[in-house]
């Protein structure tokens, strides 16, 4: 006539290997939740800033002005996120190349496009940070938990070998504590898989938006490049870009 086995007791009385597995899974769960929340906050920020920037960008503001505002922002310690950093990379490269008079307009656009591609890669890399961890927690932690369970059950049956009279009561606690490992594995895996799928699809959305932006912006830049070069040709002399 004793109290029901409490969960804490089950964990504390488990064998060393099972405890190790449980600790591993607990840490994995903690980390994956940390990353889930961190990613969601980051994505929300990136999303908000993307919208803000797109609004600014298409509001007809002077691009040089926009660039300068961004520089001030970064100087204040503000972190440049997403679309704006793509814009800055492209614009900076463009203005730098435009100063070299021997560059024709195609080379100008091509150069800034390349810079934007690089910046976009960086952005995607930033977005995808930690996603690999979530994916591996999601796919491996059930197996790790299962390993703990199998090990625990092995142990409790080995103990049974010496017992002359095998009752359910002799193996039940062992099996029960071993099953905790599987439960923990599933607990760690399920949110990780869900979050991974969600985040991966959002990364996709983001990179599509960035792609579109790169195309749109390089369209604008090529228009400006042609205008610039034809003006220079008319003037027939070396002139500074913007």
């Amino acid at each position: 006539m004793e109290e029901q086995l409490s969960l804490i007791d089950l964990v504390l009385h488990a064998s060393f290997t099972v405890q190790l597995v449980m600790a591993l899974l607990f840490v994995a769960s903690m980390l994956s939740w940390y990353m889930i929340v961190q990613r969601f906050i980051y994505f929300r920020n990136a999303h908000d800033e993307m919208y803000q920037f797109e609004e600014r960008f298409w509001s007809g503001v002077d691009l040089a002005q926009l660039y300068r505002e961004g520089s001030e922002h970064t100087a204040e310690g503000h972190v440049m996120l997403g679309m704006e950093s793509i814009f800055r990379a492209g614009f900076k490269e463009f203005s730098r190349l435009a100063q070299q008079s021997d560059m024709d307009s195609e080379a100008l656009v091509e150069g800034s496009r390349r810079a934007m591609r690089v910046a976009m890669m960086r952005e995607e890399e930033r977005l995808e940070r930690h996603l690999a961890f979530l994916a591996s927690v999601g796919s491996t932690s059930p197996y790790v938990g299962l390993f703990g369970t199998v090990w625990g059950i092995m142990h409790s049956f080995r103990g049974l070998a010496n017992a002359t009279q095998a009752t359910l009561a002799t193996v039940a606690p062992g099996i029960s504590e071993a099953l905790v490992a599987t439960a923990m594995g599933l607990f760690a895996a399920i949110p990780a898989v869900l979050a991974y799928n969600r985040l991966a699809s959002r990364v996709e959305v983001f990179s599509n938006r960035y792609d579109t932006f790169v195309d749109e912006f390089s369209g604008i830049l090529s228009r400006q490049a042609y205008a610039l070069r034809s003006r220079e040709k008319k003037a027939g002399a070396v002139a500074g870009g913007r």
Partner: peptide
């Protein structure tokens, strides 16, 4: 010099809230 602008690995430091959330949840 061009690479120096955007090669800066600026990762926004979002640490406290997720850590708190994770600990509280567990």
């Amino acid at each position: 010099s061009a690479s120096s602008i955007y090669a800066k690995p600026v990762v926004p430091r979002i640490v406290v809230r997720p850590a708190l959330a994770s600990v509280v949840l567990h």
